[in-house]
Design a binder for these strands. Sequence first.
DNA 1: TCATATAACTTTGTCTGACAGTGTGACATT
DNA 2: AATGTCACACTGTCAGACAAAGTTATATGA
Lengths: 256, 256
Amino acid sequence: MIVTVTNPPASELPVLRKVVRSSTSDLIADQLRNAIYNGSLEPGQSINEVRTAELLEVSRPSLREALQRLISEGVMTHAPGRGVHVKKMRVTDIDDVYAVREAIESQAIKLIIRRERATARITRALRELERAIEDNAARTIGDADLSFHHALVACSGSARLTDLMKVSMVHTRLLSLSDRRGYEVRCDVLDSHRELAEAVTAGRESQSLGVLARIMAEAASRLHGPDAGVDAQVVKALDDGAAADDQWSRLRERAQ
Amino acid sequence: MIVTVTNPPASELPVLRKVVRSSTSDLIADQLRNAIYNGSLEPGQSINEVRTAELLEVSRPSLREALQRLISEGVMTHAPGRGVHVKKMRVTDIDDVYAVREAIESQAIKLIIRRERATARITRALRELERAIEDNAARTIGDADLSFHHALVACSGSARLTDLMKVSMVHTRLLSLSDRRGYEVRCDVLDSHRELAEAVTAGRESQSLGVLARIMAEAASRLHGPDAGVDAQVVKALDDGAAADDQWSRLRERAQ
DNA sequence: TCATATAACTTTGTCTGACAGTGTGACATT
DNA sequence: AATGTCACACTGTCAGACAAAGTTATATGA
């Protein structure tokens, strides 16, 4: 069989991947989203368009495009005439966010089990969680916790569910950050998550769903808890005080 | 107790609602989304920024903001250097969209039953569906079908699930519109939906979830069906040929 | 002194115009 | 037939502008 050398079919060059070029507004949205996720931008904080655009060295239109993105993700809110603010979660948001997460993750579990998908990522994420708990830093544990749930959904192989999970992660983080008690974690995270990982890996559907429901309910009730008040005005920073990204600490100051 | 007359607390004037002022980009996004939903804008069609902006009598930046919105909703896609196109669903999208819908609607059902929420809207939507089936117009039936599922989720009272359902509706519509056979509906929609409505209203959780799963699976398999090919290049218009909005038929022509 | 009204300032919302970079199609060339 | 070249169209991004809306500060009157 003769194969021409010039212009070989894609299958012959499996090394080459589709080139990904992100637009400016994509990059801006990513930065802002990360800044929110890691606490550099606090809930309720307003985004000054000119200053932020200057800081990022982009034009105002590009920034505004990115903001639209974040607004439709529910990560920022738009107050007409008053601009864009980082979404500040209220008490009513707690159950709502966790309802969505239970929807996404339950479905992911069903898909994983029914389609018998590989669960290596989940066990790997569980090990990361174990390690984070040893370090005993709330922020690290929180990250590992969310990563675990992301891994769970990613295993399902559903692109859309995985995307939804990504924004739900930010929502969850915003819930904690909007809580006046700041960032907290339950001490029994590891047990329940290990149980979940094992049940999913073993293909025990109803048990998995049960454990998941329990995890969600407990997380929600922790936020609801006595004198919780996600509604609070004052917002505490993350308790391990990990140095926030330089750029964004600057932004936080300058953006008033 | 003395209450000042000026600036009365909101609770005293329950008639007054928060004024909603939509931004231009909001309105544009709505128009484009509707145009996609009712088939005026076909899957794969590209959006010429200058022409579309002229047509809507808005500036290019405002249009671009709206497009960002739609892109992040997964209703349009962005090809770098080549602009924005109406999302063209592929075979792999079928199961993905229905997986998300099952996730959302299952959770909605659970919430409705556990929180014992009113189900009037569902029965009302069912009656609309009955009426639409009598008319025997595929497009009307499709609308009523989706409205039913939207009503179901809205009943749950979860704002986020309801929002997600709204975009899932457009995704579902895009699935049908991307199918070369055009718009079709199963003849047994009514039976299954009536069964679902009754089960939910009666609070029978597992039965409801079962019926829902069946509805989703059947809808997906219809699209997968023999010689289906959502991947198809040619796209048939809606079969009842309801006159598409004047403005948008113009756009379709002019936007190439 | 407190509350309201006026003024000054800031910021948003939107538009116009501009221009380099990239994609596209026609045409010439090898 | 494949490649190279050119012109054109469109996108991606920016700077600047300005009215409208919000915000803060100042002045005025009870």
